[in-house]
Amino acid sequence: MGDNLKLGVLLLLLLAAGWAILVIPLPFAREVAFVAGLSVLVMAAVHERYVFLYAMSAILSYGAFLTFYAFLTGRQSVSELPYIYSHLLLTAFLLLYWVLLNKIKHIGYEKDELKRQIGLLQKYTGHSELLTANEFIEQAAWIMKAGERKKEQAWFVEISLEHESRRTRDSLMASLERTIKNTIRQKYDLVTSVNDTIYLLLKDTDEAGAARVVERYHENLRTELNLLEPPFRVAAVQAMDLGQLAAALGRSS
């Protein structure tokens, strides 16, 4: 709320400064109003790193112009005051606008950065609720370590979709992902999906155990699909190290 109030106050001050430029009969009021209006658009359009540069340039340029003008017209110090006020108003306007713009842009950038970080740490993909590839690799590291200690096997299974029809491919993959979730041992084995391939890491099992999981998967799919032949190819190998898994998923371990 404090931030919101600051925003409101900035906005009101900006309005007041702009109103003063328009209403108070200071020298070059029309030109200053034009520059102020133009600056609103320019400062919004340029990249953040140039905004302050622009504001400073405008302020200093106008100051230089007024100084030059005062010299040219031989102004006395008393009659210089309106020119100073005019410059102050433009400066106040530009600086207030710069601060306001900065605040707004900063929130946007912060949100983008958080989104990026969340994407990296995400454990589950949105639609299928399978693990993300990153999370799969991270958890696989723990499983491999445990397997090493206890001298137990882990098996890595790849289920690659092989289906000619482009039309039904997407729904078919969704169906396969849905079914695999209900086939593996919950909170025990790992599953992820990258492109059109599902990857499993089956913990504390052997080749026969891996084959049983695949068989169970075929059974579960029979109630979902009408196809006589399964629309995928299966490859199962013993998981020896993390690099093997990461390479298959196209990630670094």
Binding site: L11, L14, L15, G18, G37, V40, L41, M43, A44, A45, H47, L100, L101, I104, K105, G108
Partner: peptide
């Protein structure tokens, strides 16, 4: 940038 332009367009309208 589009979002920034929109919010600044709105700001201009307010002003």
């Amino acid at each position: 940038m589009e979002k920034n332009l929109k919010s600044c367009g709105l700001l201009l309208l307010v002003l």
